[in-house]
């Protein structure tokens, strides 16, 4: 309720990052779709083809950033949606940590995958 605004939890940073990642994702998601469905047909993908692409530094870096920003954008989006629906208190905290861990695990696994696909390392 109105009187209980005591903790000044500034949500502005997450709001800004959600927008900044959005700008990046608009370009990269469109590029990703074009490359893997139109330039290279999805059905013709092979491990060697993937490896060749992932072994270029710029492509590797773009894809890894894609992973991180998409994870943040998605997980933060889910969290926002739940807060908008009135999630509060300890359940809100539980969801916050659960989503945080899920996001972190996704980035870790995604990084393992990207390392398996590249000859750079």
């Amino acid at each position: 309720m109105a009187q209980h605004y005591s903790s000044f939890d500034r949500g502005g940073r997450r709001w800004l990052f959600q927008r900044l990642t959005a700008v990046f994702l608009i370009g990269v998601l469109a590029f990703h779709f074009m490359l893997l469905h139109f330039v290279n047909h999805a059905a013709d993908l092979t491990f060697l083809g993937t490896q060749a692409r992932m072994s270029q530094v710029s492509y590797f870096a773009t894809m890894w950033l894609f992973l991180v920003t998409a994870t943040f954008h998605g997980v933060n989006g889910v969290y926002n949606a739940l807060v908008n629906q009135g999630l509060t208190g300890s359940r809100k905290n539980a969801v916050k940590y659960l989503l945080g861990i899920a996001g972190l695990l996704l980035v870790v696994q995604g990084t393992r995958v990207s390392l398996a696909m590249t000859t750079l390392v």
């Binding site: 992973l67 994870t71 998605g74 889910v78 949606a81 899920a102 996704l106 696994q109 995958v113 696909m117």
Partner: peptide, 18 residues
């Protein structure tokens, strides 16, 4: 948004075969 974030997790799971 929900579909895309769901797909993101599935996508990484499928790519884990690499």
């Amino acid at each position: 948004g929900w579909v895309l974030v769901g797909y993101l997790f599935t996508h990484i799971a499928v790519l884990s075969t690499s």
